[in-house]
């Protein structure tokens, strides 16, 4: 009986035909404009990447032909190998690999230390307000408006006096300090979106400063930690200025090393090697974005909507 009624209602629906607004055609002027612009923008952004990758896969004779947009006739990975492990900068001829490991040793501790300190800062500024905490925060934010270049020389002196100028740790300290304003702001705003009553309940439950931080706040803040992680990894990995000022050739980060390879003036310009080296250097931030892009957007959105 039920089946029959279902069938009959289905057939009557078929007879009356589809309802609602008339479906829009896929190829209407609006869509053509929209996708046209999107495609143009994509090409605009992807073309340099295309040229880089194609050039890096060609041998030098083919590069000299000048057809930069054409794919390689004969694919060779030699430029990549050379960029990674053989290209010379000054006396070192071990390619970018040295810079890569330097960058890893700079980025990992800098990211961890800066996020650890900034998250506690943000937490304390919101939940454990002390006399003058707002002024403290204002000063901290003000710091982010001063151009880095102004502070270079004073910091060189400070690091020298502290005995860590030209060391990895010196650079890590610099990155941590310069990451502080924006990260503290980020964490403070995120923590302010967590209901205050939760914090009060935890206090009644006898949790202290660190207890609340680790057991209540941290588990609720994964998205914002991912955002901070991405900001810091890309920022520190891509940094050139601090790397070149506060380190010495042995521990130059990858970006500085890349510059030295690309800008070396002796001999023939090996465009294919330069391109391979550039793609290699940009690979880490690229991977970070691809892997955590979704979390990144979610974190930004969570902070924005609930805040």
């Amino acid at each position: 009986m039920a089946d029959v009624s279902v069938v009959s209602s289905a057939s009557s629906a078929a007879m009356t035909g589809p309802r609602g607004a008339k479906p829009k055609r896929a190829m209407n002027p609006r869509n053509i404009m929209l996708y046209g612009i999107l495609i143009v923008v994509c090409v605009y952004y992807l073309l340099p990447l295309w040229v880089m990758v194609m050039t890096s896969l060609k041998g030098m004779p083919e590069v000299r032909l000048g057809n930069i947009f054409s794919p390689p006739v004969e694919i060779t990975f030699q430029p990549w190998v050379k960029a990674w492990s053989e290209a010379c900068t000054g006396l070192n001829c071990d390619g970018l690999s040295r810079g890569f490991w330097n960058s890893v040793m700079i980025t990992v501790p800098s990211v961890i230390v800066s996020i650890a300190i900034a998250s506690v800062n943000g937490y304390a500024l919101i939940n454990w307000k002390f006399k003058g905490s707002d002024i403290f925060f204002t000063i901290l934010i003000f710091g982010s408006f001063i151009p880095y270049q102004i502070m270079l020389y004073p910091i060189v002196i400070l690091l020298r006096e502290a005995g860590i100028y030209g060391t990895l740790w010196g650079l890590i300290v610099v990155h941590t300090i310069f990451g502080m304003p924006i990260l503290t702001l980020l964490f403070r705003n995120y923590f302010s979106s967590i209901p205050e009553e939760l914090f009060k309940a935890a206090r009644v439950d006898g949790a202290g400063f660190w207890g609340i931080y680790f057991r209540i706040m941290l588990p609720m803040s994964l998205p914002i930690f991912v955002v901070a992680l991405i900001l810091q990894v890309t920022g520190i990995w891509n940094d050139f200025l601090f790397g070149v000022v506060f380190t010495k050739p042995d521990i130059y980060p990858m970006t500085v090393q890349l510059n030295n390879i690309v800008n070396s003036v002796q001999g023939v310009k090996e465009y294919n090697v330069n391109m391979a080296a550039t793609v290699l250097t940009g690979l880490v931030p690229l991977i970070v974005y691809f892997v955590s892009g979704k979390l990144f957007v979610r974190g930004i959105a969570a902070g924005a909507v609930k805040g």
Binding site: E197, K200, A201, R203, V204, M220
Partner: peptide, 27 residues
């Protein structure tokens, strides 16, 4: 607050979202 011998119930419940009910009670 924890030394005063009080228990408090909040308007927004203020339950710890990442813990189970048991975790909330035992915290």
């Amino acid at each position: 607050p924890s030394e005063r011998g009080i228990g408090m119930v909040f308007q927004s419940y203020a339950l710890y979202p990442q813990m189970t009910v048991r975790g909330n009670l035992s915290f």
